[in-house]
């Protein structure tokens, strides 16, 4: 059977599994939305800080759920894959003529699809509450593709950890780390408005800042080529590195001859 068909079957399984665990679909939707609601309302006064780039904190903060949703999807996908290692389901797959590439690509395909659906949902919520994209309809398309790329990048990271450790607990232990990356970024304020020096430095070194800023630029700025290039570049770099690492880990895990 062709590689594409194998990928299709693995992706289908990944999506079916996600949909059949309501907690795993509801949480990535509800939790970012709850944070979006309380933060955008709680910090709306921040738009009065001199130099704040927009007068809607909701529009400013709308970039956040795209990243947080991708993180949740990553954890779920990684946990699923680790469970496959633990139960021996991966051995079952290894005994079929399935190619290793199909497993990784299929798993990521499933994540990408779920990431896209989530992103459409977040965008719709933003639009429903009055956010207008400065980059217009083409910007929405670019935003959704960036969100999908981010889901793939983090998904591959989750897959790598799952295959390397083979333990769903270890994958969940990764969550606080990603959480730190998210919180120590420019998610709450633009970097140039962060007053504390060390925090601004950390946020500047933190790749997550650029992913957020890329998404954000499409919403509040319009077409900011530099922000988009950085976001797509960093997103792709994480994706490529993480996929290579995952493929290596899979090779160690599936030592079939």
């Amino acid at each position: 059977m062709s590689l594409a068909a194998q990928i299709g079957h693995i992706a289908q399984r990944s999506v079916v599994r996600t949909l059949r665990q309501p907690a795993n679909t509801v949480f990535p939707i509800v939790f970012p939305m709850a944070l979006l609601a309380v933060t955008s309302a709680g910090l709306s006064a921040a738009t009065e800080i001199p130099g704040f780039p927009t007068d809607s904190f909701l529009a400013f903060f709308l970039a956040f759920p795209f990243i947080q949703g991708a993180l949740f999807a990553t954890m779920n996908a990684g946990t699923d894959l680790a469970r496959d290692v633990q139960t021996g389901f991966l051995n079952r797959l290894a005994l079929t003529p399935m190619r290793g590439a199909a497993l990784i690509a299929g798993q990521l395909g499933g994540i990408a699809l779920m990431g896209l659906v989530q992103a459409i949902f977040y965008l719709s919520i933003g639009l429903a509450f009055g956010v207008r994209l400065e980059s217009g309809v083409p910007g929405a398309v670019v935003l959704l593709s960036l969100a999908t790329l981010i889901a793939i990048a983090f998904g591959a990271l989750g897959a790598f950890f799952a295959l390397r450790t083979g333990s769903s607990e270890s994958v969940q232990g990764l969550f606080p780390l990603l959480f730190v990356l998210l919180f120590l970024s420019s998610m709450n304020l633009p970097r140039e408005l962060i007053e504390t020096d060390w925090f601004r430095t950390v946020a500047t070194l933190n790749p997550v800042s650029y992913l957020i800023e890329g998404v954000r630029s499409l919403i509040i700025t319009g077409w900011d080529v530099q922000a988009l290039a950085l976001a797509f570049g960093i997103g792709s770099a994480i994706a490529v590195l993480a996929i290579a690492a995952a493929a290596w880990a899979l090779g160690l895990r599936m030592t079939r001859t």
């Binding site: 059977m1 068909a5 194998q6 079957h9 399984r13 079916v16 599994r17 059949r20 665990q21 496959d84 139960t87 021996g88 389901f89 991966l90 051995n91 079952r92 797959l93 005994l95 079929t96 003529p97 399935m98």
Partner: peptide, 27 residues
């Protein structure tokens, strides 16, 4: 064909879905 220790199954899939995946991957 192999049935290895501790039935390695996916609890969220049905029996038929398991067979569909298995037959598909075997071509």
């Amino acid at each position: 064909g192999a049935a290895l220790q501790e039935a390695a199954l996916d609890g969220l899939l049905t029996g038929r879905e398991h067979i569909r995946l298995q037959t598909a991957l075997h071509g």
